[in-house]
Design a protein around this nucleic acid. Structure first.
Lengths: 350, 350
DNA sequence: TAACTTCTTGAATGCGTATTCATACCGTCC
DNA sequence: GGACGGTATGAATACGCATTCAAGAAGTTA
């Protein structure tokens, strides 16, 4: 019952030309008599001809399909990233196929197999939590590949990451400049590059200022863990006067504990800085000071590197780190000379 | 520089059999001598042979690819939906290609063209805000297609939706039973099925109880609009004692206005019920009473209907409406006999 | 032993396109 | 007018696989 699709041969017959001529019209690969080309186009439109990308792929070796491998989409950062990638790649004539990777070895096998079977032209590995095994297998496949927001100790892999260490430093320095001294860090997962580097930035800034880190605990990127660690911190003798939290998502939970459970005022009693500039961070009930990731630029760079690698497969790998931006809102005390809304909370880039 | 892929013929040569035999081993389409089959499999593994899905598609007419068309991913509901669809379809041997549709006629053309060119076996239209034009064009293509969470006045289209009208009724009745009388509705977009039906449920429940709707305004699913309308409502002479808000996302903004700006207590002064059971609804700082959409079941049903339509293209269309569930939390006054956390806030299905 | 069935197998072919390759055409230049 | 460069075009082919077809092998029955 499937309506048979119109092929290039059908168009050729109807237009009184040969199939290759139709092909040449649609692929612009060689010159065709303008009059004849116009006739072909007209006939094609009337018949509803659409070139079969699968046949084109088989013959040319190019599928114009990019595989994007993700772990979770719950985190709004990756949802937005996926959408932007898709738009950017579509604009270049590529379609995007998504693959969700769990962590089991079996799943890794399956996904690499699927990517190969599907003949994708390129791969974006876009999740912190993708296993090293997966990354290694994908790279071994020889398909052009860019790591997005996910580091790897492989100098031959192209990657685009945010300057997490620098961001951690910025946040911490901002707190220090505001006169805060008992600064604790609720860290991200210490097996993920993001978590590690943000912590490094924190430690570097503290060290540079001659301050002792008050506390620095791995919260695994989990809101509940961050909340529990906050309770613990404020049950200690020496209570923090500032918290640098590794993600906004965790910071929202931390704020809840501080305000609702502990009855503390923010930023009068405690300053809080998050990371990501999630959309909710600009909501008035949070009004969270945070570090914005330059997601738009990261995507653009990721896409352009990938496409260049596809075009020139001998291209040397490229590693890009994009600086973040401190977004000053209301949860952290201001250093002298700073103003709130130093950057617009509206044009959320992350 | 691209490493040439191993083909079935390579395997055949190495294993001393013909290419069709290799094909038969991998497609299980006909019987092969067990000993020989094992040899082929061994050789294939050694050579790293992976069947080329593109070639298979070209002559079988099946691509094992499903197109999922979305408008936005910012709304967490669709992110989760996409992830679940992908997992469910992968489990059945299908891969998922995503297409983001804006609303311009040009984009609609492009997307329909892409879907056809890519030879997808089936399509899921998964966004309220997809244009009628797009839906019509996709249906006209003859490719099996299911509308997910998006109604259409086309009895020949399969669709899976949530029972929005029933949900609106449940929420409103709950408020009425709690003794509230001045109940207003901050409605969703009145050009989208969801928005319309939730409103209908509200109106039906009010009518059945002999109550006059206090107010019922279209907030276009936008948080800022809902916030502004809330301010207006409470500037009037007759102030609401309950608000039924068409989405959680809007309700979060409404709560912010009520508590922070107007200094009202929830639920003592005003009761609020949202819709969706977004993850944040269970956060203690919101603790939002809401209607949960049965997203898991909706996905399962969508996928199974689509696959059945692919298998049997003469299958009559199917329209499924899945009931929602009232999740009782802390923002709405309880009717006599009800307990909070009547349903677990942890097992979030939406 | 001949006729028949069942199971295996390779040669040939087709899917729809892009790409040779060869040919025919047209105009140009000496 | 013949040689030459460029353009336009169709016939043939390749891409990698699945499928049809025919034929061979092996086993069965009469």
């Amino acid at each position: 019952m499937a309506p048979p699709r119109v092929t290039a041969s059908d168009v050729a017959r109807a237009a009184g030309v040969s199939q290759p001529t139709v092909s040449r019209v649609f692929s612009r690969s060689a010159s065709v008599d303008p009059t004849k080309a116009e006739r072909v186009r007209t006939v094609a439109r009337e018949l509803g001809y659409i070139p079969n990308l699968v046949a084109r792929t088989l013959n040319s070796g190019q599928s114009f399909r990019i595989g994007v491998v993700l772990a979770y989409l719950k985190n709004g950062f990756f949802s937005e990233a996926l959408q932007r990638m898709s738009k950017a790649l579509n604009a270049q004539g590529y379609s995007v196929t998504v693959y969700f990777a769990g962590n089991s070895a079996e799943e890794v096998d399956d996904i690499v197999g699927d990517l190969l079977a599907d003949q994708v032209d390129g791969i974006i590995l876009a999740s912190i939590s993708l296993s090293n095994e997966l990354v290694a297998r994908v790279r071994k496949s020889g398909i052009p590949c860019v790591l997005f927001n996910r580091g790897q100790d492989d100098p031959k892999a192209s990657m685009v990451t945010a300057a997490n260490s620098d961001g951690g430093r910025q946040a911490t320095e901002f707190l220090i400049q505001a006169g805060l001294r008992r600064i604790a860090h609720l860290a991200g997962w210490q097996k993920a590059m993001n978590g590690i580097q943000r912590k490094e930035g924190y430690l570097a800034a503290m060290n540079a200022a001659g301050l002792e880190p008050l506390a620095c605990v791995d919260c695994h990127f989990r809101r509940n863990v961050a909340m529990e660690e906050t309770r613990k911190l404020f049950a200690r003798n020496e209570v923090p006067d500032a918290l640098f939290v590794a993600t906004d998502h965790m910071a929202f939970g931390v704020l809840e504990v501080l305000k609702e459970e502990l009855g503390l005022r923010v930023p009068e009693d405690v300053s809080v800085i998050g990371y990501d500039d999630a959309p909710m961070a600009s909501w008035k009930s949070f009004d969270l000071t945070t570090i914005r990731q330059p997601i738009g630029q990261m995507i653009d760079r990721t896409v352009s590197i990938l496409l260049e690698e596809i075009r020139d497969r001998d291209r040397p790998p490229e590693q890009v780190e994009m600086p973040g931006q401190l977004i000053v809102r209301g949860t952290a005390r201001l250093p002298a000379g700073w103003h709130q809304n130093h950057a617009s909370p509206i044009t959320n880039g992350a």
